[in-house]
Design a protein around this nucleic acid. Structure first.
Lengths: 209, 209
DNA sequence: CAAAAAACTTGCGTACACGCAAATTTGCGT
DNA sequence: ACGCAAATTTGCGTGTACGCAAGTTTTTTG
């Protein structure tokens, strides 16, 4: 029950942060406003989020970290690790409806919000480690941890490219090369890691060469 | 020429930060003290570092980012990309003398400093991208960027493990498993990425499978 | 069911990061 | 050498993060 209430206030805070940022612009929102809109004290707001940007971005990213890990774990056992990871990530990052258009425009516009957005990729690392370890015969989790961190890094690279081009096309109207849709960018960024994922999946022991 | 003076004040600031932190403990050092010891205004301190931890850690990490990239680029052309990267990193992170023993003990002790220390691995990403791209025939730098980010992530994982065990052995005297020297941890963490580095090196085109 | 224990919230005080604009310094052209 | 333009330093003001201890709510225990 305490968990439910904690998650409720957490959602209320990030929802209020996003709504106020959209209404008045992100620079005209103070933490007191967010706290008041969520019905808690300013100090409590800082027990949940350590920056305004974190709260705003959380309203968009939501529970993506846990969902990615669950999606990897739920793939049938006969698909390769690489395919499971790639498809799970692409699925979760193309989930429509969730990213409200205006919210994403806001995030791509302000540098501080962009940074907070890409920083969320770090949060998938821990759950993903478990999901990858579950698909490896090797009980040692060192490889899984490194692979999860690498996958998270690749996702971050893809998001950076995506934000860069979308920000550019937002300012200079239409003449930039739209370097691809987000799913394509994700697949391209993850492609170099396929050999590492395959190798970890096939060899049980030490991959020293 | 102004570059020299800027680097000088930067060094003076981080050196003063480390010295004061060692003398009085990191929690008893205020920004004003660091600025005064370096002979600049407090506001100027914040033009160089955005946190006390950053300044302290910079005194230890120094120019490691650039040195790693240079070391990768300087390996002979007939060694594999994976070997070049691994050996360059191991070399730069075992450079003796630089990490003063007491400074590292200080960093491993305080959580905030530990976080700042591991965060420095992100700084090697950009230079390393260039160095890796220079060893790939493929002019497209997407793969190099992803690989560099993955390598940086692996190094970060190794540092986390190293700090974790050293911190544990610092508190509970001696009964924890010393999970290995830093060079060993680095090699183990980088091993899962070898297939990806090899594949990127050999195939010029698209590594889709 | 009462009372202790644990967890969460809140107010307060302190230190801090950073935007902004004025003042000072540096590099350069003539 | 002189002064102009760009870069850098500095003071100030605002909004913020967070440790700490007291107050409040929830969970556990006898």
């Amino acid at each position: 029950m305490r968990e439910q209430k904690k998650q409720a206030t957490r959602e209320a805070l990030s929802a209020a942060a996003l709504r106020l940022a959209l209404e008045h612009g992100p620079d005209n929102v103070r933490v007191d406003d967010i706290a008041e809109a969520a019905g808690v004290s300013p100090r409590t707001y800082n027990n949940y989020f350590s920056s305004r940007e974190q709260a705003i971005v959380a309203a968009v990213t939501g529970e993506r970290e846990a969902r990615v890990a669950a999606a990897v774990a739920d793939r049938p056992a006969d698909v390769s690790l690489a395919d499971a990871v790639i498809e799970a990530i692409v699925d979760q990052y193309t989930d429509p409806g969730e990213p409200a258009r205006d919210a994403l425009l806001l995030i791509t516009t302000r540098p501080a919000l962009r940074d907070a957005f890409v920083a969320t990729t770090g949060a998938i690392e821990h759950p993903l480690t478990g999901a990858i370890a579950g698909r490896l015969a090797d009980p040692g989790r060192h490889a899984a941890r490194v692979l999860a961190a690498s996958v998270a890094a690749a996702v971050r690279v893809a998001l950076e490219q995506w934000l860069q081009t979308t920000a550019a096309s937002a300012t200079t109207s239409g003449l930039v090369v739209p370097s691809g849709s987000l799913p394509d960018l994700l697949r391209t960024a993850l492609a170099p890691l396929i050999p590492a994922l395959d190798a970890a999946e096939h060899r049980a022991g030490r991959p020293h060469h």
